[in-house]
């Protein structure tokens, strides 16, 4: 297997990397230090590795890094910092929506993907949007509350 050179634009930084053609985007991101992208199953069952690729939420374990060549990638860590969090990150923190936190980055990516298209979702639409993100701790109720609360704040503040 011969490595290929690819270019990844991740959270506003550009990386030129040589990767084997069978390398998944998940492993590439984690190897580059984007460890907020979590690995839970490596076959699309759990959603912990969800990121935006060119504005679309994907499970990065199901995308080859080569397919993302020249792509714009946004991970949960790229949405905000603890000083300047994204409204979803604030709402998840305040609603009790985070227990062990391992599903949280992927969950926030799926929630943002929903709010990007539907700023005022129903609870059922939120459930549907995060149905590919497993959470073993919370029982989902506080996550759904957090997404609703972020939607309200983003609407009021014009953020997002």
């Amino acid at each position: 297997m011969k490595p290929q050179m690819i270019t990844l634009h991740i959270n506003g930084r550009t990386h030129y990397v040589a990767l084997n053609p069978n390398q998944t985007l998940l492993v590439a991101l984690r190897d580059l230090g984007y460890t907020d992208v979590k690995c839970g199953c490596e076959k699309g069952d759990c959603g912990a590795c969800a990121v935006f690729l060119n504005g679309v939420a994907v499970n990065s374990c199901l995308v080859l890094a080569g397919q993302a060549d020249e792509g714009e990638i946004l991970t949960a860590a790229g949405l905000g910092t603890s000083e300047h969090p994204h409204p979803l990150q604030t709402a998840f923190s305040d609603a009790g929506a985070i227990q062990c936190g391992y599903c949280t980055p992927g969950m926030i990516v799926s929630a943002k993907a929903l709010l990007d298209h539907k700023p005022h979702p129903t609870d059922t639409e939120i459930r549907d949007a995060i149905s590919g993100n497993l959470c073993r701790c919370t029982g989902y109720a506080q996550i759904i509350q957090a997404v609703q609360s972020a939607a309200e704040k983003m609407d009021a503040g014009g953020e997002g």
Binding site: D36, A76, A77, G80, S82, L88, S93, G101
Partner: peptide, 17 residues
């Protein structure tokens, strides 16, 4: 807000792996 929540929300928490 739990003291561990925001670090997890923004991806600062460094898990074992």
């Amino acid at each position: 807000r739990k003291v561990d929540a925001m670090g997890k929300a923004v991806g600062d928490t460094v898990y074992a792996g």
